[in-house]
Write a protein that binds this DNA or RNA. Structure first.
Lengths: 227, 227
DNA sequence: CCAAAAGTGTTGACTTTACACCCATGC
DNA sequence: GCATGGGTGTAAAGTCAACACTTTTGG
């Protein structure tokens, strides 16, 4: 039956974005013990105002980093005794995907000493079991990108096929054949070809494409989702 | 920061087994309010003795149904305000898979009015949001059986190809072509052909096979796992 | 010899991979 | 006109889906 041990519940958010073709994770620098001055995931205790756990995750992300209006989904719940020196703390982790062009004004909360993007392949030492949480999030993203339109949640509304390919390469951490990649995506018919071109380079401008989440939902035989 | 609202944490277990080619879920009948006399998932509050959440899930399953030593993995955490009339209760749900031949002596705990297997396609009204949890677990099992050896966790150590096919048919809730099914499995080389035969019927005895989890783990290009 | 479940192959359609060159543009 | 990334096709291998009959056994 019910024991009197105090259990506290937190949420932690693994927020990914692609910057210059690199997968990066949003971290905050802790200002307080435990793990003072260590980098950690944005997150915090659930508050009475949070209607759902997802609200709590989005709320703590906003409070600690000033990032809001992003895609968010639950990852996994970590609750081993001893994962937090303060006592029994169960944390529900979330995956967030942030669009590449999003105007972010990173702003640490008063109880953090900083906020920054870190390349997923070159992370600092992390507080608590946050390294394990990130590893888990990365694995989820890797699988998810293969059979769901997760890649578009990391891209602006208009993007080139190369941008899309870079997302796959960054997430899967390997290079792919560009002919096969383009062929596959164009054959699937998920992309709307726009009449616009990227003006980024001083070379041949690349065509822009768009992805419609709504059209995708209508597909009768759309690929399987894990969530 | 930390609010004083009391949050309690439970675990709930969706335990599946295949009985006579049907996917079934293990339920308990509640003896107390709320949802008195309603069927519900086995589960309960985390105790100070639980080293991990998985221990808690296995522990509550044992206490409430007398089922133990089964495969268990985390599913999803449900924590919307209002999912439990008693206050804020966050529940970490678990999926359990039980081998077909396992000798189970179902035994309700003193605070339950009964334990029983229910066909997944004909469930009674359920307490709390347990229907949603089962739906979620079923979806997970359905995906998982496609790219992981989950099916073998529902079978005894020695089984016929028909037994295996029945597991797939029950979980996927559709029939499959037996020639293609056998061909695919035999071609994968995951099954050890035994020199024994099933003596079940009065007709032609079927060959028994075994699956080795250890051998499977060794495979260099083994299929993808979601978890 | 009959009833019942066990077991077995082929074909066509489709998908996946490997692989290298020409094109369009800005400077 | 050149440097740079944008954009394109084909063939071989492999995978997947559809489909029906023979074999073995107990009674």
């Amino acid at each position: 039956m019910e024991r009197l041990e105090t259990i506290r519940v937190t949420v932690d958010v693994v927020a990914f974005a692609i910057h210059q073709g690199t997968l990066e994770v949003l971290l905050i620098k802790r200002k307080q013990e435990p793990f003072k001055s260590c980098w950690a995931l944005p997150g915090g205790f659930i508050s009475g105002a949070d209607e759902t756990l997802e609200d709590a995750a989005a709320g703590r992300l906003k409070e600690e980093t000033n990032v809001c209006d992003v895609y968010i989904e639950q990852l996994y719940t970590f609750g081993d005794r001893g994962r937090d020196p303060r006592g029994r703390v169960v944390t529900v982790s979330y995956l967030a995907l942030i669009k590449q062009d999003k105007e972010l004004e990173l702003k640490a909360s008063s109880n953090a000493a900083g906020v920054a993007w870190w390349p997923a392949n070159k992370l600092p030492d992390l507080a608590f079991d946050h390294q394990a949480i990130i590893t888990y999030g990365r694995r989820r993203l890797k699988y998810k990108i293969e059979y769901s339109p997760a890649a578009f949640k990391l891209l602006p509304p208009k993007f080139t096929l190369r941008d899309l390919q870079e997302v796959y390469e960054a997430v899967l951490d390997k290079s792919v054949d560009n002919r096969n990649f383009r062929k596959k995506f164009l054959a699937r018919g998920l992309l709307q070809e726009l009449a616009e071109f990227s003006q980024q380079s001083s070379f041949r401008p690349a065509r822009l494409y768009a992805f419609s989440e709504e059209d995708f939902e209508q597909l009768p035989d759309r690929p399987i989702f894990v969530f």
